[in-house]
């Protein structure tokens, strides 16, 4: 199961992307599917706890640059106005800020991009009442997608820029959302493709080298990309470029990025005058 095409083929064999991913993992490490589901359940609880804890208005990161902003975004008026997108964004920011404030999170696939996938899943659960068991299966789908991106390209900002971290997280979340809403495995591959396509070229430019600015805001951007990508795919729009090719394009773009835009804190936002101390 190295490409999205393999993953779609396995989904046909085992019934869905999530079942194919679960089956693959069980075969890898000899644990039963039940054990793996319980392990994923603990991941989901940590995600949920971090989303709630990050909403505290009193949080501050060590540098003081971020923390407490998700509380503003989660204001009922703001959620009313922006609906699902508003809720998902507030949770994504909450988890990302909690991470920046030394809170306990699940790297998904990295610590810097940890808000996107749970932000999307927790928001759609609130809106549409998905069960925890359904979310857990969606996490297996997301993990399967993340593994393919990591194998074919990279999920490290230092190697591929933010498109590799937040881009991968958005692609994972988009595919998971499609499965939750009853879309096919092909649709999930289109959703992942759209998310990656729309985040192609995004650089990793942390101010002072810290996982704070712009990282926490990029989690909000990433979850909105995931929702839009899932919406396109679920509406029956197919990506004109297969997801596997977009993953390879992401790798090539990452390789072409200068080192100043790959987590060195030297370019992009990090080099802007007002935040650049030295």
């Amino acid at each position: 199961m190295r490409t999205f095409a393999d993953f779609v083929r396995d989904a046909a064999k085992y019934g869905s992307l999530s079942k194919a991913a679960l089956h693959w993992q069980a075969k890898q490490d000899g644990r039963s599917e039940e054990e793996l589901i319980e392990l994923m359940r603990t991941r989901l609880s940590v995600m949920r706890e971090s989303a709630a804890a990050g909403l505290s208005p009193n949080l501050r990161s060590v540098s003081g640059m971020v923390g407490g902003q998700a509380a503003l975004m989660n204001d009922p008026k703001s959620i009313d106005r922006f609906g699902l997108l508003g809720k998902a964004g507030a949770y994504a920011l909450s988890i990302a800020e909690y991470n920046a404030c030394m809170g306990k999170i699940v790297a998904a696939p990295t610590a810097g991009s940890c808000g996107i996938l749970p932000g999307a899943l927790l928001a759609v659960q609130e809106q549409d009442g998905f069960t925890d068991d359904e979310l857990i299966m969606a996490l297996f789908t997301a993990a399967g997608v993340g593994r393919i991106i990591a194998l074919q390209a990279t999920i490290s900002g230092a190697e591929g820029g933010c498109q590799a971290e937040c881009g991968a997280a958005a692609g994972m979340a988009a595919a998971a959302l499609v499965e939750l809403y009853g879309g096919t495995a092909e649709m999930a591959s289109h959703a992942c493709g759209f998310a990656l396509m729309n985040m192609l070229g995004l650089v990793c430019d942390p101010v002072h080298g810290l996982v704070e600015v712009p990282c926490v805001y990029r989690n909000v951007g990433g979850v909105s990309q995931a929702l839009s990508a899932a919406q396109m795919a679920l509406s029956g729009i197919s990506s004109p470029i297969p997801c596997d090719e977009i993953i390879l394009a992401m790798k090539e773009v990452g390789d072409a990025l200068p080192s100043s835009l790959r987590e060195t804190g030297e370019g992009g936002c990090a080099a802007c005058r007002s935040v650049c101390r030295k």
């Binding site: 404030c101 030394m102 809170g103 998904a108 996490l139 993990a143």
Partner: peptide, 14 residues
């Protein structure tokens, strides 16, 4: 690399 390397580790940030 397994699926819990992708959704993990569970860790204190950042």
């Amino acid at each position: 690399m397994d699926l819990f390397d992708i959704l993990g580790p569970v860790m204190v940030g950042p």
